[in-house]
Every structure is written in structure tokens, then in C-alpha cells.
């Protein structure tokens, strides 16, 4: 579980993830009036606060770190999906951007992302570890082997968790 974040790369790595989350949060903020905006910003900042002190980011805290990152990413995804849905139906006169975002090129319907979020809540009640695997793999972007190392369980177990979780979630998507 130690290879997940190596000591010398921690600063850059944390900054990189922060900036990635932040960039997503920031573009949300540009469409002001969205009620989730402030919350996302606070969440991302909070995430950074937890991590900014690299001396505190020891290996043992990696799991917690990814769990926070996953939480932030999940929130951002949900916001994003809502934004897309809003843009689709919103009065175009309210949209003051330099150019209009092209909302028609999406390959996955944002409504599915919303359903996914609800399904994840259900999964958490059914099988918390499988839900954590989804967090770390899908939201925090770790490979399944890394997830296994992080959770301290066999890769096979994580693979089964993921298979169960994806079937569970997909079964709930329309």
C-alpha cells in the first residue's frame, strides 16, 4: 500500500489533484447563481486544507486522502451533471458566456450521473466496501490493484467488489 503515493512526489501530486478539482469547481463558479457553487468551493478548499500540510500527509493517511478526493469528485460530477441539465432547458438569454457551450456533444446523459449518485447511496447501505471501491476506482481514479493495496485486501477481492458494484449500479440506471 506504500507505492500509492511516494514520498517525494506528494507535494506535486497533491497540488495537481487540487488544481484539477479546483479547475472543475472554478468553472462551476463562473455560472453564478448555482446554489451548489459555494459548497463545491468550500469542499475543495477543505480538501486542500486537509492536505496542504504535506508533513501531515503520511502514507497511513493515503486512504483518507483518496476518500476525500473521491468525495470532492463525486460532488463535482453531480454539480456538473445538474449544470448540463440546466443548460439544456434554461432560457438562453440568461446564459452570458463569451460563446455558448456546446451541450449536444455529450456521450453520456447527465441524468444518468444523477441516477448513479442515488444508486451509490443505496450501494453504501448494502455493501460499504464495494461502495468504497467505487469511490476509489471511479471517483478518485485509482486502478483496481492500487485500490486493493490501499484497502489492504487481495486484488481478487477488489475485482469482485467492483463487479458486484457495477452490476448493482448499472441495474439501477435507466
Amino acid at each position: 500500500m506504500r507505492q500509492v503515493v511516494n514520498a517525494s512526489g506528494v507535494d506535486e501530486w497533491v497540488d495537481g489533484l487540487y488544481l484539477q478539482l479546483r479547475a472543475l469547481a472554478r468553472s462551476e463558479r463562473r455560472r453564478s447563481g448555482a446554489p451548489d457553487t459555494l459548497h463545491t468551493t468550500a469542499l475543495v478548499n477543505e480538501l486542500y486544507l486537509k492536505l496542504a500540510d504535506a508533513e501531515r500527509l503520511r502514507f497511513g493517511e493515503a486512504r483518507q486522502f483518496f476518500s476525500y478526493a473521491a468525495k470532492a469528485m463525486r460532488h463535482i460530477l453531480l454539480d456538473r451533471a445538474k449544470l448540463q441539465m440546466r443548460l439544456k432547458r434554461e432560457d438562453p438569454r440568461l446564459r452570458v458566456a463569451l460563446t455558448d457551450p456546446d451541450v449536444e456533444t455529450l456521450t453520456i446523459d447527465p441524468a444518468q450521473a444523477l441516477e448513479l449518485d442515488a444508486a451509490l447511496d443505496a450501494l453504501l447501505l448494502r455493501d460499504p466496501r464495494a461502495a468504497e471501491v467505487v469511490d476509489l476506482h471511479f471517483f478518485a481514479g485509482l486502478g483496481l490493484d492500487q485500490v486493493a493495496a490501499l484497502l489492504g485486501v487481495a486484488p481478487r477481492t477488489v475485482a469482485r467488489d467492483w463487479r458486484f458494484a457495477s452490476a448493482f449500479l448499472k441495474a439501477r440506471l435507466t
Partner: peptide, 19 residues
Amino acid sequence: APLLATSAAALAQQYTPPH
């Protein structure tokens, strides 16, 4: 299902109006 085959970050990026 394509939803879970992508990563959340990529999906969020896709939902983000372009700069």
C-alpha cells in the same frame, strides 16, 4: 454501460462547458 467505463474526472470534464 459506458457510464462506469469512463472515470468520474473525465465525465465531469465532459459536462464542463468548454473554456
